[in-house]
Design a protein around this nucleic acid. Structure first.
Lengths: 234, 234
DNA sequence: GATTGACTCGTACGGCGTACCATACGATGG
DNA sequence: CCATCGTATGGTACGCCGTACGAGTCAATC
């Protein structure tokens, strides 16, 4: 059976010229490492989306063999977990630690969280399906601490946190998905126009064409925090 | 080439006995149809999750060849779209149409929406990634109409709708994901205990062990609607 | 009887994740 | 100096996937 396989262009074995000493890394690729794998995975995910990440492509980008990856990571799920956590780091609010009110602090962290996920649109929909990594737990801890300091009673703390979580996740997943396919909105608009009589109200309000994601997010978050405030610090 | 394939138990060509008229469908499998394919896909998704649905398994369950499916559906994505929409139908509020206040109406629809998705836990995380089908558009239209009738100004309508959407989607996706893996929570608890010092507040509030999803959902939704009410019908 | 259109499905292709195994190489220590 | 061993690399192969292609069956029609 003659191999019909594609190129597999032989990579010559590093031995390019013995007179020229190897310097450090002219172009022979730095060695594999967990960190480099994750960074490259994030690049690949940003460029090609969730389905675009395959172990083969990842190895290609790294200039290595596929199976070499498995020395550094357990499996593909592991790559997802690590890439996801790497994108959720939080450096904290910009100013001094004490001068701001709890509401500004909360809004800043949530906004930064959402921003990080939107810069890597594959991340939002991945987050709920994976175990919670250290960075997202850190954000929850900070949120928890801020709200507690603001006077939210222990009994109501979890409701408040999960409500904010739900809102941010829903907003970001929705936004990231719509972002990926602008034509979906065109298609939806067309469908709406064809079936105009079926959906008069959302057609009139141009719900699906609303472009002001940022503003809508902030205002909705405001509604939620209003609900919180009216209950806990009238 | 001897067929090494599995069973493929030859379906005799319906011609079983000309004296006995064919009844309707003794056990020869009803014929393939778009509807039967979708119903079976939903069964399979419920039983095995998103990754459990493959065209081969689907065909197996239907007692047909794999490629026969492609006469009735375009491709696997099509199957997802149809299965998803089939799960999002809304039959409306239980009582007479006029007597209830807008808030009860909204809560009922959103609760029913969430319930439907949780009965099919694969559906929630699928919804944002696919084009909006007629059933979910119908829900948005109803929501839109109810809020408009309740006095929400046109300019604020989209913010209100998207906020509710975000909240419901976030809550349901999160819940459905946690549902799938109870051990995630055990693992998270363990991690929290090992790293107790890193996350004291969320450990103390037992955030990740909170079991009252239903109650948390309702209370958070209450917060959001409070924010809405305080603005639009003080 | 020939033709057509609706429907079914076997085969095959390219791609996937990853198990298994052979290899290469620096450090160790006899 | 050679043997051994831990670290790291990667080729091959297996079983699974989605689906293109084209051959087949069968009822209705001419």
């Amino acid at each position: 059976m003659a191999a019909k396989r594609t190129g597999a262009r032989s990579k010559q074995p590093r031995r390019q010229s013995e007179t020229l000493q190897p310097e450090q890394e002219p172009r022979g690729e730095p060695p594999l490492s967990r960190e480099r794998i994750i960074a490259t995975a994030v690049e690949l995910l940003d460029a090609q989306g969730v389905d675009g990440l395959t172990m083969r492509r990842l190895a290609d980008r790294l200039g290595s063999g596929v199976m070499s990856l498995y020395w550094h990571v357990d499996n593909k799920e592991d790559v997802f977990d690590l890439a996801l956590d790497s994108v959720l780091e939080y450096r904290g609010p910009p100013q001094t630690g004490e001068s701001r009110d709890w509401r500004a602090e909360v809004v800043h962290m949530l906004d930064d969280w959402r921003g990080g996920m939107l810069r890597h649109p594959w991340s939002a929909s991945l987050l709920p399906r994976r175990a919670l990594g250290p960075n997202i737990l850190g954000r929850l801890e900070l949120l928890s601490k801020t709200l507690a300091k603001a006077g939210v009673a222990d009994a109501d703390l979890n409701v408040a946190i999960w409500s904010l979580w739900n809102y941010v996740m829903g907003a970001t997943i929705t936004r990231a998905s719509f972002d990926l396919s602008d034509d979906d909105r065109a298609a939806a608009q067309q469908r709406l126009e064809r079936l105009g009589e079926s959906y008069p109200t959302i057609e009139r309000s141009r719900l699906l064409l609303d472009d002001d994601w940022e503003g809508t997010f902030r205002k909705g978050l405001g509604l939620l925090l209003d609900g919180l405030s009216s209950r806990y610090d009238p």
